[in-house]
């Protein structure tokens, strides 16, 4: 089964290349500096988290770890609620409405746009010509239906792929260094994206590409979530 498209597999590869070229950190882009505050606490709809934790084996295969992933989902949710509360915003949980096929597609479209923006940002060769210097992405005004059903002002999407180096991979790293080759180690790749549910515009986007970070404990997960939320509108 293939849950994420081949484009994403390509993206993983690109990110690996990019990480080995530079020690990237989070970089956010924004259309707004402040959230719309027609009510004291803007309601922010958290789209289904797209998170997977895996082990990076010696040969480079990534083995998904269910236990870590399930724990990380909890940790992220908790940390995010704290982050938003500290910013005087309220997190609204999302559950799929199985009878609403259009909404399912709308949520998936958010994910597709998010990964496209990430791909567009990570390497100059990957940027779409029309988007090179512009940050004007939009899901479209259809997202208003999401706002109506959930009474939310914004939609927040989080995507993280977090891999951890096994002992075997560490050995490969050391050995390949003898040939002057830097074998990629475990890394965090992800983004956070905020969509205005009135216009459908992507108003803020922050990416995370780095070695390090850990989502396996609540304490450490808070740091990753803080990094993802860097530059979030006030």
């Amino acid at each position: 089964m293939q849950r994420r498209g081949p484009a994403l597999a390509q993206l993983c590869g690109m990110v690996v290349v990019l990480l080995s070229m530079s020690g990237c950190v989070g970089t956010s882009q924004s259309q707004i500096t402040d959230l719309r505050r027609e009510r004291s606490e803007p309601r922010i709809l958290l789209m289904p988290l797209d998170v997977e934790l895996s082990e990076l084996n010696a040969g480079g295969t990534q083995e998904p770890n269910a236990e870590w992933t399930k724990a990380a989902l909890q940790h992220i949710d908790t940390a995010l609620r704290g982050e938003l509360a500290a910013r005087n915003s309220r997190l609204v949980g999302y559950t799929f409405d199985p009878n609403n096929a259009d909404e399912v597609q709308l949520v998936k479209l958010n994910g597709a746009v998010g990964t496209t923006i990430l791909m567009n940002q990570v390497g100059p060769g990957l940027a779409l010509p029309s988007k090179r210097d512009q940050f004007d992405w939009s899901i479209g005004p259809e997202v208003q239906s999401l706002a109506q059903r959930t009474d939310a002002d914004y939609g927040l999407l989080l995507y993280v792929r977090d891999s951890y180096t096994t002992a075997g991979r560490a050995a490969v790293f050391v050995l390949s260094a003898m040939f002057g080759v830097r074998a990629p180690l475990g890394e965090q790749v992800g983004f956070a994206m905020l969509v205005d549910l009135r216009s459908g515009n992507v108003v803020w986007f922050n990416r995370l590409l780095r070695r390090g970070g850990d989502l396996r404990t609540q304490e450490l997960a808070r740091e990753t979530v803080q990094s993802l939320m860097t530059g979030f509108p006030k």
Binding site: N57, A58, G59, G60, T61, G168
Partner: peptide, 9 residues
């Protein structure tokens, strides 16, 4: 997994 682990070494 085992083959790739073996192959790289």
């Amino acid at each position: 997994r085992n083959a790739t682990d073996f192959a790289i070494f």
